[in-house]
Design a protein around this nucleic acid. Structure first.
Lengths: 232, 232
DNA sequence: TCCAAAACAAGAGCACTGCTCTCTGGATGG
DNA sequence: CCATCCAGAGAGCAGTGCTCTTGTTTTGGA
């Protein structure tokens, strides 16, 4: 597998990593719009054309950063859940812990957040290798709700007939075992959570919400309620 | 006021409008990233430097388009509400009508939507002249909830102590007369609504939600419930 | 009516971008 | 040992936002 073939391979993965690191630095500093291949190359002491041996285009570099960002926020969410779980937290507390972790990650990495949850940059690109990392946070939330359901069951109002087949399909696809109402509520809650964070991060709460932490905490708790997690 | 001073003034506002129109066309066709001053000038048969007499920079042009986009979606929301209101709809129906109108506008104007609710393009810019147009949709939703409150009153669970002062302040600032719990729920619901639309538009629902219309309809209805609007 | 001032358009140019091509020197592996 | 491959260099193309200078036209006051 990862047998170190030779100096050449080693150098290649090293340079690739250096490029990504530098690019991530620039992304964090200035945002995706200001990230330029030439600047990255300049900073690394190479010429811009040499960089194309490692990434076929600027968009490919961005895609690599996108995957990393998904993994980063996914890891943050999973760790927060694991910590809460280990501390014997109830499902509702685990839920809010994950929500807070995602928000904290977003505030810490605003440009990376914008890259993955803001407007898609190049027309739009969702290569196959992004879909697994992209679902880590969602899967974490599913895990929490599933645990709660296994614990004492979740009761939500019944779905409208028009949505029922879709909710059943979604459940079969990625939330096996959950009541369809819960699956639908969960997916909506996940989108809504990102909406809350985006509004805060993208300036939509300017002159509207001042105490963002308190506001978010309450909204996240209400979201937990909306997916049927019992209050502690 | 708008007394036509002379041929010069007239020409100026005409050219300004032509520039914005062409820019909007390009925005709709290719997205904000591909909108270039030079291309606009080329299409209009002028040289790029001449364009700087009308807009001091590319960002200023984009800001003008942002304001227009806010006005466009705001008008769509207001019209949908007016239609529902005229048809004798209950508050909850007015609410979902506005939600559907915003979603429909977004699907019709994806790049303009991305411009206003996606990641802010230049670092970030929220000039003073954008804040009024930006609040039209929000104000429409406030109006609906206010009417419902005046009608029979809205009852929501009490706020956590940590959020109460903030909710009271928000109420005094832009939602006079509403119970603070409702104000807080309303602001959250607005952000969450945009989160739902963004997920759909930005591809986050790919391989997750298929029947987006049914899904959204249910989510919007649940949002109405979350702000305390009684079911019809 | 005439003329200075202001507004406008055009062109050249700067510094930057992504990306392609060709060429060279050195490591790789048969 | 030597042919092969490949990383890097350099030049160059087409495009970008923006500035500065140079003519030209319109305007409003004396």
């Amino acid at each position: 597998m990862s047998t170190v073939r030779g100096a050449r391979e080693r150098a290649r993965i090293e340079v690739t990593a250096a490029i990504k690191d530098e690019a991530r630095r620039m992304l964090a500093a200035e945002g995706a719009a200001k990230l330029s291949l030439r600047a990255v190359a300049r900073e690394l002491g190479m010429v811009s054309s040499a960089l194309y041996r490692y990434f076929p285009s600027r968009d490919e570099l961005l895609t690599a950063l996108i995957v990393d960002a998904y993994d980063s926020v996914g890891a943050a969410a999973e760790q927060a859940d694991a910590r809460a779980h280990a501390g014997g937290a109830a499902p509702r507390e685990r839920w809010t812990a994950v929500c807070e972790a995602v928000r904290a990650w977003a505030l810490d990495h605003p440009h990376e957040y914008a890259l993955i949850y803001g407007s898609p940059v190049p027309g739009y690109s969702a290569p196959a290798d992004t879909i697994a990392p992209a679902s880590r946070v969602g899967n974490t939330l599913i895990g929490i709700v599933r645990a709660a359901h296994a614990g004492r069951g979740l009761a939500l109002p019944p779905l409208p007939a028009a949505l029922r087949p879709e909710a059943v399909r979604m459940t079969a696809d990625f939330a096996e075992g959950l009541p369809p109402e819960v699956t639908a509520a969960l997916v909506a809650a996940w989108a809504q959570l990102v909406g809350l964070i985006s509004f805060e991060l993208f300036g939509q709460f300017n002159r509207v919400v001042e105490d963002r932490a308190a506001f978010f905490a309450h909204a996240a708790d209400q979201l937990a309620h909306a997916v049927g997690l019992p209050a502690v």
